[in-house]
Simulated assay, not measured.
Amino acid sequence: MSGYSLGIKELDELLGNIREGTNLMMIGPPMSRKDELLNAIVFNSQNSENSAIIVSTREPGERILAWFEDNGMDIQNTDIGIVDCVTRTLGLGAADTEKIKRASSPVDLTGIGVKISQFFEEMLVKKQKKKIHLCINSLSTILMYSNIQTVFRFLHVFTGRVKAANGFGLYVVEDQMHDVQTIATLKQLFDGMIEIKAVGDAYAIRVVGMTSKPTPWFEYSIEGTKVSLRKT
């Protein structure tokens, strides 16, 4: 069946197949384990037809690949690419590798765009992958260095690329870090949202905009690559 899933049973049952070319914002408070949630979604989608690009403004590429490897992914035989926006900002002169391409910093949107495009070319044209994920973690870091107009133009290009490639885009935003106008501007580029909120000491998740009404809120826990939900 064509389309995409989140690899989270309860949400996938409610959403059905996520249509190709969909772009979603994942927005939630700090410390709500959005990084692991994003990684779990990518992990659970990977097979011989799939590929993924993760733009990281938080962690070096090696650390992200190590998370996937620690959770049982055969990195060498999986088409996953990291655009690392961290290592060179630390003054480390690490070279690009097959799986990791380095941008100079989160402010270097031109460089980040070039690296994303190189991975698109490798995965979709050279390797003929049928499906591709583009994940940016996080837009909030990029917005700290660039104005909303510049980020909007950058995102407009790549959400368009995801649509054209029948891909699936996921873009992480920190809640309460941006004003209402910034969020409203960004929302124009997305088909829906994965919303996260604090519920006491736990966190809850729902999906908005993909069905006629939002999904219910579910409290979630993450163990490795398994995301478990229960209704709030």
Rank of each mutant, 00 (worst) to 15 (best):
H178G: 06
D175Y: 11
V180D: 13
D96V: 15
I82D: 02
E59N: 03
D84L: 11
D175P: 08
G72E: 08
H156C: 04
I112A: 05
L143N: 11
F119V: 13
T185R: 09
E62I: 11
T78D: 06
H156V: 05
I54F: 01
I64E: 01
G81D: 02
F154R: 03
I183T: 05
Q128H: 02
V157I: 11
V157C: 04
L139C: 07
D175E: 13
N71E: 11
R153Q: 13
G91W: 07
S104D: 15
T57W: 01
N77W: 11
L124T: 12
K163F: 05
A165G: 01
N166C: 14
G91Y: 09
K130H: 14
I80P: 00
T89V: 10
G81R: 00
L170H: 04
S140G: 11
Q149W: 03
V86G: 13
D108C: 04
R161T: 13
I142W: 08
I75K: 03
N166F: 10
S104A: 05
C135L: 10
K131N: 12
I148C: 04
G61D: 00
I142K: 01
I142D: 04
Y171H: 10
G93I: 01
M177F: 15
H178F: 09
K130D: 03
N137C: 05
K115P: 10
V180R: 07
R102K: 12
G169L: 10
I136A: 05
G81Y: 13
V55Q: 08
V114H: 07
K130E: 15
R63D: 14
V180G: 02
D70P: 03
V180W: 12
D79W: 07
V114S: 10
Y171M: 07
N147P: 07
I80T: 03
K130N: 09
H178A: 02
K126Y: 12
K131W: 13
E121D: 12
I100M: 06
T182V: 15
L134Q: 02
H178K: 03
R58F: 13
G113F: 08
L109E: 06
G72I: 12
D84Y: 05
L124K: 06
G113W: 05
R102T: 14
L143R: 10
I183N: 00
K115E: 11
V162I: 15
L155M: 13
K99L: 04
R161V: 15
D108S: 10
D96N: 15
T57Q: 01
T89R: 14
K126W: 15
M73L: 14
S140H: 07
Q181R: 07
T97P: 06
N147H: 07
S138I: 05
H133Y: 07
R88C: 13
V162W: 00
K187S: 14
L134V: 01
K130C: 10
A164T: 12
